[in-house]
Amino acid sequence: MADNKGVMAYCEVADGKLAAIGAELLGGGRKLADDLGEELVAVLVGSGVSGLVQEAIALGAEKVYVVDDELLKEYQADSYVAAMEKVAMQAMPRIIMLGQTNVGRDLAPRLAFRLGTAASLDCLELAIDADSKALLQTKPVYGGNAYAVFTTEYYPQVVTARVKSMQPLERDDSRKGEVINVDAGLDASAIRTRVVEKVVEEVEGIKLEDASIIVSGGRGIGGADGFKQLEELAKILKAAVGASRPPCDNAWVPAGLQVGLTGKIVSPDLYIAIAISGSSQHMSGCSGSKNIVAINKDPEANIVKQARFAVIGDWKKIIPAFTEKIKELMAG
């Protein structure tokens, strides 16, 4: 087991392109590999993914393992775990990093258990312990009320890193690297699931992940009508609309607008939290914002304590006046 060497970054492919998380993992992984004095390798799994090898190398990988198979056209745990198991057994890495995406959070634990260990999901920080060379895995627990640092003596150490928690390297197309093709030897009959349909729920306006301003509403908004007012404000500010969980659960807004531990993780310049109490699970998703503004009738609400600016009062009175003033300031 102690023979395991190197850092492996699983680079997700989405719509034929390397997903942004892959570059982030290679950036963070580069640092871990350098601290260990070991190599950084990338893994590409899918169908028709060989063309992405150069990009993974330009982003820092010294070697790229490629599993290219028609049966891997769509992500499914059965086939992807089998492919990654093959790669892991051949490469024997010390660390396997994946992203905390809807693929990574599905694949990482199954892969870890397949390899006889457990994973740490949603790590915010990864570092090498100088003495033991163990991977120190810092992740939120208790909904973000606390952080825990985990490690393990079982290899490979499987982790997922939160999106945007690591910096990609500058792309350098002069970097050279080696390609290793792995035949996963997949058998269609061993894939017990079948994707029959993919449904995309379009969100109007600016996407949460891309927005530099977010106007977010909570349970206190009271209904879909209330969110219309937030949409109006968002339009003027060129902001995206977000929400805490209750508005999503109540279908006042689409589920994809949920910000938080189990929703989207956002880090805009300005996060305006309206009638949101600021539960630890919600703050997990927005505490990386540069500025939080709270609008809440309860001065004791947790969101108020964590905000830079707050107005205490009924949002129904505050938001129309705020929107008017913003319009005025932007015109002037």
Partner: peptide, 26 residues
């Protein structure tokens, strides 16, 4: 193995924006 469990520090001091009325605070 869990090596450490700790509570993150909450940085920053909130500034409460006041006014004669909710509209003015806004």
């Amino acid at each position: 193995k869990m090596l450490k469990l700790f509570q993150p520090a909450h940085e920053g001091q909130v500034e409460i924006i006041e006014g004669e009325s909710p509209e003015e605070s806004a």
